[in-house]
């Protein structure tokens, strides 16, 4: 069973339906004991970094513990950003620190949010990308982004490259919404379910 962490925001139904569509069992939950027994964890997210971190505060311990045990953890959009050490959104705020780096806003010269379908430039192989072609399009909606670093699996160009997919062993994150990225996104959800 995949635990989809419910912290009161976001369109969790789509994540759940997407996983169901690829044959994975999941449950939307904010119960630490369910997260503790899950085979994999999805940390979804929309909204602001600080409030997101505030909302998951009671679950931070169990998420970190499971991630360190090697349980597959997928952060989506804000959920991916929260995997990082810190973000400059609304001041300086600490994240979960599972991935090195700092989330920063897009340059002022660009239209934000970065909204719509943009292409992936694959930097290295990862199980999440099985069957996914370089240049595939995925759906983004965000105003802050992670720089490209050692853990970047795929980058996307919007006024310069940023991290679209990050991975450190069992901890993965997508800045885009796989549950809203058509066939490409469904394939990634399937790949993630198979990591469990």
């Amino acid at each position: 069973m995949i635990a989809i962490i419910d912290y009161g925001v976001g369109n969790l139904r789509s994540v759940e339906k997407g996983l169901a569509y690829v044959g994975a069992r999941s449950k939307v939950t904010n119960d630490p004991s369910e997260i503790d027994s899950a085979d994999a964890i999805v940390l979804p997210g929309v909204g602001a970094f600080e409030s997101g971190m505030g909302q998951i505060a009671p679950l931070k311990g169990v998420i970190l513990e499971r991630a360190r045990e090697g349980v597959p953890l997928l952060g989506i959009c804000l959920g991916m950003q929260m995997l990082y050490e810190e973000s400059e959104e609304g001041g300086q705020h600490k994240g979960l620190g599972l991935v090195k780096g700092r989330i920063a806003r897009f340059p002022e010269s660009l239209k934000v949010p970065h909204m719509g379908w943009n292409s992936l430039s694959i930097k290295k192989r990862h199980r999440l990308l099985n069957g996914i072609k370089d240049g595939s399009y995925v759906y983004f909606v965000h105003s802050y982004r992670a720089p490209v670093g050692e853990s970047t699996v795929a980058a996307t160009d919007y006024g310069g490259d940023f991290t679209a997919i990050v991975a450190e062993d069992n901890v993965v994150g997508t800045q885009f919404h796989p549950e809203k990225s058509g066939e490409t996104g469904l394939r990634m959800l399937k790949n993630f379910a198979e990591m469990a």
Partner: peptide, 8 residues
């Protein structure tokens, strides 16, 4: 629609 269509 959300059961079957995975775009915004």
């Amino acid at each position: 629609t959300a059961d079957e269509v995975f775009i915004p």
